[in-house]
């Protein structure tokens, strides 16, 4: 494929940038995401996750069942912060990103 082809529309990440991070060891969508910002825009990888899985498969030969899904976080689709907090007396009980972080001796595990 042409190296300049956009793979992640939201963050404008090209095929070449994804190829580069695969060459330094990225093997799953979340690796590519952390290294390039691919999938971190408004659509939250809804469009590019299957494209990236295909590139990982093509470049590494890794079978699809060994390329895991991207991590999908709350909120499931974009929502205004104002809407998220309105009427919510139990806001702290909304499952937050922080709930997923495990601490050990006050540090992230």
């Amino acid at each position: 494929m042409d190296k300049t082809t956009i793979i992640c529309r939201c963050e404008e990440i090209s095929y070449e940038e994804i190829e580069d991070v695969i060459s330094i060891g990225a093997r799953r969508f979340d690796d590519v995401k952390r290294l390039t910002r691919c999938g971190m825009g408004p659509c939250q990888s809804k469009i590019c996750s299957s494209l990236v899985a295909e590139i990982i498969h093509d470049k590494t030969g890794l079978p699809f069942p060994e390329i895991p899904l991207p991590r999908m976080r709350m909120p499931i689709s974009p929502i205004k912060i104002g809407t998220l907090t309105t009427n919510s007396t139990t806001f702290s009980s909304v499952k937050s990103v922080l709930d997923e972080v495990e601490l050990e001796d006050g540090k992230v595990k």
Partner: peptide, 13 residues
Amino acid sequence: HRVIGFYKDGSVG
């Protein structure tokens, strides 16, 4: 209406 996530007690947001 949209489901946007889940509360700690299992209720649907």
